[in-house]
Design a binder for these strands. Sequence first.
DNA 1: GAGGCTTTGTGATAATTATCACTTACTAGC
DNA 2: GCTAGTAAGTGATAATTATCACAAAGCCTC
Lengths: 211, 211
Amino acid sequence: MQIDKEFLYSRFNGLFELNLLKELAQVGTYMEIEEGHVLMRPGAYIRSVPIILSGSIKILRSDSDGRDALLYYLGGMDSCAMSLTCCLNRRQSEITAVAEEKTKLISIPVEKVEEWVTKYASWKQFVFATYQKRFDDLLGAIDQIAFRKLDERLLSLLQRKSKQCGCSVFTVTHEEIAGELATSREVISRLLKQLEKLGRVKLSRNKIELI
Amino acid sequence: MQIDKEFLYSRFNGLFELNLLKELAQVGTYMEIEEGHVLMRPGAYIRSVPIILSGSIKILRSDSDGRDALLYYLGGMDSCAMSLTCCLNRRQSEITAVAEEKTKLISIPVEKVEEWVTKYASWKQFVFATYQKRFDDLLGAIDQIAFRKLDERLLSLLQRKSKQCGCSVFTVTHEEIAGELATSREVISRLLKQLEKLGRVKLSRNKIELI
DNA sequence: GAGGCTTTGTGATAATTATCACTTACTAGC
DNA sequence: GCTAGTAAGTGATAATTATCACAAAGCCTC
């Protein structure tokens, strides 16, 4: 799908210089991703770098036994440092990326990503800023995993999800949460019940309300 | 201390272009860091980016309760992405850096770090490569912390330490290890005893031999 | 060689998390 | 409404990790 220039310009106003916007409109591919769609799996080769326009994408680290650990979310105007890394080095993906909700993005071919770093100061800035943000995100993930207990991590995850969707009730299964926290479903079920007893959440099938 | 040009040139041969090497020699500060010296603490402002010439530096994430988690080691020709991030954004350090052994490095003032990214292609490449390496390191740290049990993590840490110093016997206390794995000394003592029973290590005061 | 400091060993016990084996509830589709 | 399939609840039990409270050992200094 061709990108609507007006839309692009309004979105990236101030972020990118005009010539870059023109090129973006020309070579970028506009995509809409449905909720739950897996954009990227470990081992896949990456040929493009996404910039998220709206919606959100969760980035997970997967281990060999099939367990996952949530690293961070990508939201509006975010890009993915993994893609950058992999693109610039022609390497395989090290992570899993899943659309948390319906997500719109622009996909930029790898050659341009590299070319623009030299060509456009604003793109270089953007790439650096992306690395830095993801770095912070990873440190945040490590804080959670290394120093917090599961119940705290659970609560914090629920809060993030709530923030993400902008509402206190959201659709999620215990199984899915267990995946993101690299533990088992039973453990999450029990901790959620505990939180419910404490009056922090309200549970129903496929749904959690944060209080 | 002034940097010996010949030394620099031999070290960075092929990595940096000639003009960059000249500037490096001019504005870089050569430093020797003693083992155990803390180069950086959370909250400190960072005014320079180090490039490690020899020796090694361990990078730890510290939480508010004083616990630490080992993130990764910096070795020869490595630089620190945290410093880069912090420098480029004039932010405070988010990590702790401690010399694991006697370490020689060049320290580069923050203004130059930024200037050179535009000025020298080889420096830009170096900065990107640094981000990418540290990114991989962080993912590795997350793998360990999220998916491995303590005994595995302990063994893997011992192996890294052994590799680092290039010998099978190295000087370390249980307390120090506990710090790096964000757990308590007793736990490490017990796991080490277990490993000793399995014939994987030999223990003595302040020393561990990996078998 | 006697204190004094640091490091290590260890028992007892608790807290946290993981696993297994089910049962019960909910929901969509016929 | 019935059925199948998915999601959630729960008891029992184990494994892992954390904590507390000391004891013992190694080493340095006087």
